[in-house]
């Protein structure tokens, strides 16, 4: 991964993490997403502008699993998030803020590592499709199309 640090693609993307589950909306595409477990931890660390290597370390420190597998899974997830335009490279010069990983459910005990899965929902996308203008009235206003907005 070329870039070492990413940030949430605001204001296009808005998000909230509640009880270990991140809900993420892309306001331009109409897609929304869910991340739980390791995925939600990675998301929260990205939100705090943590560098990728630090995110991998934080996950490895709190989860039991093969280090190489953890690194691959975390970087794969970040690439997916980037492909979905949810995060963008952070090339700012601002110094790193203190960041922290949310504690896992076992407190200080390591949790078994499970590769994060980005759940994507596209069922609202049609609401954002541009409404086609097929015909206009004699004053130039689009004629009503009752099929839109039912």
């Amino acid at each position: 991964m070329t870039f070492t640090r990413f940030k949430v693609n605001a204001p296009t993307v808005t998000h909230e993490t509640i009880d270990g589950e991140a809900v993420i909306i892309n306001l331009e595409s109409g897609c929304y997403y869910s991340l739980v477990g390791v995925g939600a931890m990675v998301w929260d660390l990205l939100y705090q502008h943590a560098p990728v290597n630090e995110i991998v370390t934080a996950i490895a420190n709190t989860h039991a699993g093969d280090a190489a597998e953890i690194e691959r899974a975390v970087t794969d997830l970040i690439q997916q998030l980037r492909a979905e335009n949810l995060v963008v490279p952070d090339e700012s010069e601002t110094p790193l803020a203190q960041f922290s990983a949310a504690p896992n459910h076992n407190g200080h005990q390591k949790t078994a590592f499970r590769a994060p899965v980005l759940q994507k929902f596209t069922d609202m996308q049609e609401l954002l499709l541009l409404d086609p203008i097929h015909d206009v009235d004699d004053m130039g206003w689009p004629k009503p199309n009752p099929e839109i907005g039912k």
């Binding site: 909230e16 993490t17 509640i18 009880d19 589950e21 991140a22 809900v23 909306i25 306001l27 109409g30 929304y32 869910s34 929902f121 609202m124 609401l127 954002l128």
Partner: peptide, 14 residues
Amino acid sequence: TAHALAALAPSTIF
């Protein structure tokens, strides 16, 4: 709780 947000927010916002 996150499921409530996922159910309410997208269908409202879009």
